[in-house]
Nucleic acid binder design. Sequence first.
DNA 1: CTCCTTTCTTGACATTGTCAAGATGCAGGA
DNA 2: TCCTGCATCTTGACAATGTCAAGAAAGGAG
Lengths: 215, 215
Amino acid sequence: MPERVKPSAYHHGDLRRALLAAAEMVLAERGVEGFTLRECARRAGVSHAAPAHHFGDVTGLLTALAALGFETLTGAMREARAGVEDPTERLRSIGRGYVTFARDYPERFRLTFDWHRLNHEDPALRAAGGAAFAELEMAIRHVAGLADEPLEGELLADLVHAWSLVHGFSHLLLAGQLDHAGTGERVINELLEGVIGRIRVSARSETRGRSKGEK
Amino acid sequence: MPERVKPSAYHHGDLRRALLAAAEMVLAERGVEGFTLRECARRAGVSHAAPAHHFGDVTGLLTALAALGFETLTGAMREARAGVEDPTERLRSIGRGYVTFARDYPERFRLTFDWHRLNHEDPALRAAGGAAFAELEMAIRHVAGLADEPLEGELLADLVHAWSLVHGFSHLLLAGQLDHAGTGERVINELLEGVIGRIRVSARSETRGRSKGEK
DNA sequence: CTCCTTTCTTGACATTGTCAAGATGCAGGA
DNA sequence: TCCTGCATCTTGACAATGTCAAGAAAGGAG
């Protein structure tokens, strides 16, 4: 059990960060189901009631953790699309980044979409979730050549299609539903490429459609 | 609080079924997160330790509940495809049935895919899950005209694509991610049709491909 | 009728989340 | 430098939970 880094029992100095670090460990090891506030407090070296000052309750801590999870997701998508110029390939790279995040941090992935446990009014969660969503939205708009139109109609349909695909694939993978006899990493990667390869955007700006005849 | 239907406190007679019925209510009202064994026992009118004899522990009860959930899912898919002859339309109808199940029974849906809480060795869960999976598999094979080939390659890719789509859509819907200002039932239905409309099967039997020229 | 098995009840224990009271430390102002 | 108010923690308590053990009661077979 790690010792308290500061001698002051009544003023840690950076307890919020220490609790978040402990919380990430507990989440990674035990999943959302096994996550407890007291275990986080133990690992941070404080009493069971100390987290309340910083997070309110267990929902507050999980919400903060989910915001961090969204930030990691955004980072994974940005890293995946780095250096990719073709709009459709960029969108597909972002899709791969999404699934990579789910595979690399399965418990974070599950937490970020565990609707019932989180406080959706939380500004940090909203901002982080919005940023992740914006990555996907910008990529779709880039392919469609529709930077300013409202997100509706075919554009929205394209986004929901792409998001459903990568989200569904991630979720089925984590739920063990893609595991079959002989299903190894290679088969999973092939299945992923099969799914990513079907990401399409049908919405188009009229200018792009006419001048290039890309119909 | 319902009274015990039989006077014998030490022999209910049909406690397993009564506990499952109570469990369905608790799950529907409180979700997986708020589900407790003691609350199920209370509603069934027995002591807190009575469920142990029938289910072992809370995982056992949730596993039995998940098996029922898969049965409901299978029923929803079968009902959705009833009377639909065209293979591709039948597959799409099954996809709609999948999403309908998620919308009608959100907590059951979430439970059936809550990997960490369930006992995957349970024969009833395996059978029920297998039957649900078989509905999707048979529909894909029907479109492809591939009744006997091993489930691999393009056939498997088609299945994973279709499943990822409907599963991802369901999950995003339940996670509140498709909720935006003005997003009502009609928009959700349009988005669903947009997703369902993109379900395609590219695997084909050679006989079908050649004799009919359906490429 | 007896005995064994099944099916429950009661009680206990450890752990959890949350709340309240109070102790301690920090920082700002006089 | 001292005082005061606020922030930040500790300690303790309570209710609820899951699980286990011991034992009571009911059913069924011989």
